[in-house]
Design a protein around this nucleic acid. Structure first.
Lengths: 153, 153
DNA sequence: ATGAGTGCAAAGGCTTTGCATTAGG
DNA sequence: CCTAATGCAAAGCCTTTGCACTCAT
């Protein structure tokens, strides 16, 4: 999906909820679309200094409600935001436990299929209604791994 | 591992960090050991009303540092705490997106092995040092699914 | 004009921290 | 005894909310 189509889709989804696709919201969606990883509020604001922090949070809340954006709670720091998977593609995250950075990764379709089947089964056994899964790899990003070495030396 | 052995192990790990295994800490570990799912601070305090909230947080921080407890950040609400996997067994979580409740589930060893291999590979491609993975199923627990039906009727 | 969106500042809510006191080894 | 642990209260920090103003339709 190219960025133009993305904006059209986003506008439609907001519109059907009685909301407007303003310049601010378009800017937020654009920033997320151009990133190859989920971003925090400070990162999003950094790209567009004209938006108030509260508006960013509010816009993201509306975008999440409209199914355009997804929120990732990685740790104690800021939440990370990314476009919903139906606007991009199914993927997972490498989460750095030291600096909180999040990167995207994908798995093979076969493994994903096996996972879906297995998870649906165990969920059902507990009467749980599974909607989707979240698979993150925790560890150290390249930068932090380097620093860690330096520290321990 | 029975609870007695668990306490012995916990005491050793704290001791080697120059920390003490006090009654409070033993109580917290006991509560987590007797639960079949990760608990929040209010839930932990509910079981033992004599412990101050700040002490609970501090104890959990020390227990995490000593590798005895693991923290789960599920959503916006309270963090959930459980015993570290080497004291229990590798498992995953069903997270209710409505009430925040977390339940434990396990997958087959074969699937886990496939996952580990695949994740290690994609992580390495980005210079990321993988430590462990986290796989959660998001959806509605049995109770919330029931209520949801009631609401929409 | 009418209601959604925005900015600023203040409030919320979970978690952490300072400090004096208690207690573990 | 000496230092870690505890309780209470206050502070921190990300996030949400109140309110008046602005802008889109």
């Amino acid at each position: 999906m190219d960025e133009e189509e993305l904006h059209t889709t986003a506008a439609q989804r907001l519109r059907s909820a009685g909301l407007r696709y303003t310049g601010s919201r378009r800017a937020v969606v654009g920033v997320l679309a151009r990133s190859d990883r989920p971003l925090t509020i400070p990162e999003i604001l950094g790209e567009d200094g004209s938006l108030a922090q509260s508006s960013a949070y509010r816009n993201l809340t509306e975008l999440i409600g409209a199914g355009i954006v997804h929120r990732i709670v990685a740790g104690d720091e800021f939440s990370h935001f990314e476009l919903a998977e139906d606007l991009t593609s199914h993927h997972h995250h490498l989460v750095c436990t030291r600096c909180g950075r999040v990167a995207d990764v994908t798995l093979s379709d076969e493994l994903e299929a096996s996972l879906d089947v297995a998870l649906a089964k165990v969920a059902e056994q507990q009467g749980f209604h599974a909607e989707h899964h979240r698979l993150d790899v925790l560890g150290l990003c390249a930068d932090c791994a380097r620093t860690e070495e330096g520290v321990s030396r």
